[in-house]
Design a protein around this nucleic acid. Structure first.
Lengths: 202, 202
DNA sequence: CTAATTAAATACCAGTCGGTACAATAAGCG
DNA sequence: CGCTTATTGTACCGACTGGTATTTAATTAG
């Protein structure tokens, strides 16, 4: 597992498992109220000391930024790849709905999208985290837009609206579905609403 | 202004102005982050002591419940009355959009709907407040539903969906518009998205 | 071995939170 | 004038927050 097996660096060997901390923090922020989750609590859950966390992530803002970065890499990237692939417009749209409304009813499982949850909790975030979220958000909108433009060129997207607006609209509807899920609303209803809203694109 | 001029009750005369406190608290919760607004801060802004606030409202939950009740009476009731009036479906729908996307760009003005903001901040609320919000929410959905049913009977609503679902859909879209506004997004874009989403009803 | 280096955790900091005990104050009543 | 009643604000409570100074432990270099 060691990324750098040939590095017998000088001092006391490090025991803090960065990835484990990020896993625990990501799951915690995802499942619970971001604004009420303290660093102390995260340290307790990872069984690490507070100075250890500060050495690794600088401060709360640094930890949150690292978390959202990990989330982007592990969860969002596959979606962006799907959007960049060359499938039919409707098929990709259906996949998008499936992803957004994917149901995991096991107790304690995270609901909705962490990125969107964090965007809604912007008041509780530090500057670095907020900047990172804005960046990912811009990337997402740009990806949507390119996808729409390609679909238009292929004649698969015929609705009378700009790619720009369509991208905003899709993002808005997916975001709202995520919020509803995170709030605990009925996944079936959420999905029906999402599909109805996206039906204007067909 | 005195509601009960003939009541020279026994003890020290009350100086705490309940309505003033509620005005200040409502504006504060509406404009700022609910989870980060402390009772201490509200006391400072109203220039009252903390025990005074607790005597009047019992606790934070009581204050928030009183605030959302006042909001319902002062802001939401007119909308519900409009929905119960006998105007044409399209006209009422347009009014709804106008209300939801009403723009007040003066700095510091509240954006979006306080009820929806509080619903999103449910993690920070007490039980009484949450119950009050659920109640108002149910009323709102029921009002939407009756409106749709009347419009169906009049032949003004022809979309192929149940009144139940249409009510949920409208509520969802209005909620989302409110969230976007509260988050500081461009009001023009929010309105365009809202109108596009509601266009499936026509 | 000792010295240097790095990471560990304990124990603390000032500040804020929601909430309260309590004494001072202001009125009517006798 | 006290006595009762009701409202006031000060000053405090324990718990928790993000963040840090400091000491201790574990390793390599010489």
């Amino acid at each position: 597992m060691s990324l750098n097996p040939s590095k017998p660096s000088r001092g006391r060997p490090k025991t803090l498992d960065r990835e484990h901390v990020l896993d625990v923090a990501m799951a915690s922020y995802w499942k619970e109220d971001i604004g009420n989750l303290s660093l102390n609590e995260i340290c307790r859950r990872c069984d690490i000391s507070k100075p250890g966390l500060y050495r690794e992530f600088l401060n709360e803002d640094g930890l949150m930024k690292a978390v959202i970065l990990k989330y982007h890499q592990e969860v969002l990237s596959p979606v962006q790849q799907m959007l960049s692939a060359d499938a039919a417009f409707r098929e990709t749209l259906d996949n998008l709905v499936l992803f957004a409304a994917s149901i995991n009813d096991s107790q304690g499982a995270p609901k909705g999208c962490l990125l969107i949850k964090m965007r809604e909790a912007q008041m509780h975030l530090g500057e670095a985290t907020r900047a990172q979220i804005d960046l990912i958000q811009e990337q997402a909108i740009a990806t949507y837009k390119k996808w729409i433009e390609r679909s238009k060129a292929k004649g698969e997207f015929t609705a009378d609206m700009s790619a720009e607006f369509a991208a905003s609209y899709i993002d808005a509807q997916l975001s709202h579905a995520s919020s509803q899920l995170a709030r605990g609303e009925d996944p079936q209803l959420v999905k029906r609403i999402l599909m109805a809203a996206l039906s204007i694109l067909k």
